[in-house]
């Protein structure tokens, strides 16, 4: 091949544009809007992949975190909200109740990215722990007030076990149970996003590395 620039797709230039535009202003350009449905789909696709690979994690926030890192906390929050809304429409309205959790994940991932957390795997893992903590703490009041402290899931059974074995209060048990899943899932999701971001076309990663915001 003669010269590299000839063969480089012009399309990649857009991505830099989203990264810059959305982090500098609050308006969402068309490209950031177009990212959101794809990210919602990525949440589902990775959830399906995690299940197909029989991994003990959900990975169903990867799309939300991915967009938050690319296009900032506003886009991240929107992705989280829409993702849970869509799941609520398609599967069960109870998932509407957890929209705040998804919003918190999107917001924190976006802010962590602005602090540069997603530039390294270690940073992403630390951000993941923080996001996992926040997600668990957001979900507990919802579980307690709307569901009486238990959801019919693995987390609910862990909550009962914790109360029986350690005599914890309902709130404590619910918190520990929520943490037990989120604290593995979210760091793994964040590390995956950090690795995926490095695989995106070069011009974008350069832009992410040189701009702190």
């Amino acid at each position: 091949m003669r010269r590299t620039p000839d063969v480089v797709g012009l399309g990649r230039a857009f991505v830099c544009y989203v990264a810059v535009r959305t982090s500098s202003s609050h308006s969402l350009p068309t490209l950031a809007l177009a990212l959101i449905p794809r990210a919602v789909a990525l949440n589902l696709a990775l959830g399906a992949l995690a299940a197909a690979l029989k991994l003990p994690v959900y990975l169903d926030s990867v799309g939300t975190i991915f967009v938050a890192v690319l296009a900032g906390p506003v886009a991240g929050m929107l992705t989280g909200a829409v993702s849970n809304a869509v799941l609520g429409i398609l599967y069960s309205p109870q998932l509407f109740a957890f929209i705040p959790v998804a919003v918190v994940i999107g917001a924190l991932a976006g802010w962590a990215a602005r602090l540069g957390a997603f530039r390294s795997v270690v940073g992403a893992a630390i951000a993941g722990v923080a996001i996992g903590l926040a997600a668990a703490l957001t979900s507990v009041p919802i579980v307690i007030h709307l569901f009486g402290g238990l959801t019919p899931s693995g987390t609910g059974i862990i909550t009962i076990a914790l109360r029986m074995v350690f005599g914890m209060s309902l709130t404590h048990a619910a918190q520990v149970a929520a943490l037990s899943t989120d604290v593995i899932d979210k760091p793994l999701s964040c590390v995956l996003v950090a690795l995926l971001i490095t695989r995106l076309p070069a011009r974008l990663t350069e832009r992410l590395r040189t701009s702190p915001a």
Partner: peptide, 20 residues
């Protein structure tokens, strides 16, 4: 996970460009 999630995330970005 990486070879599986990789094409999904790359095409997420490129497809979004086309849609936009």
């Amino acid at each position: 996970l990486l070879p599986l999630a990789g094409p999904l995330s790359v095409s997420l970005v490129s497809e979004s460009e086309e849609r936009a």
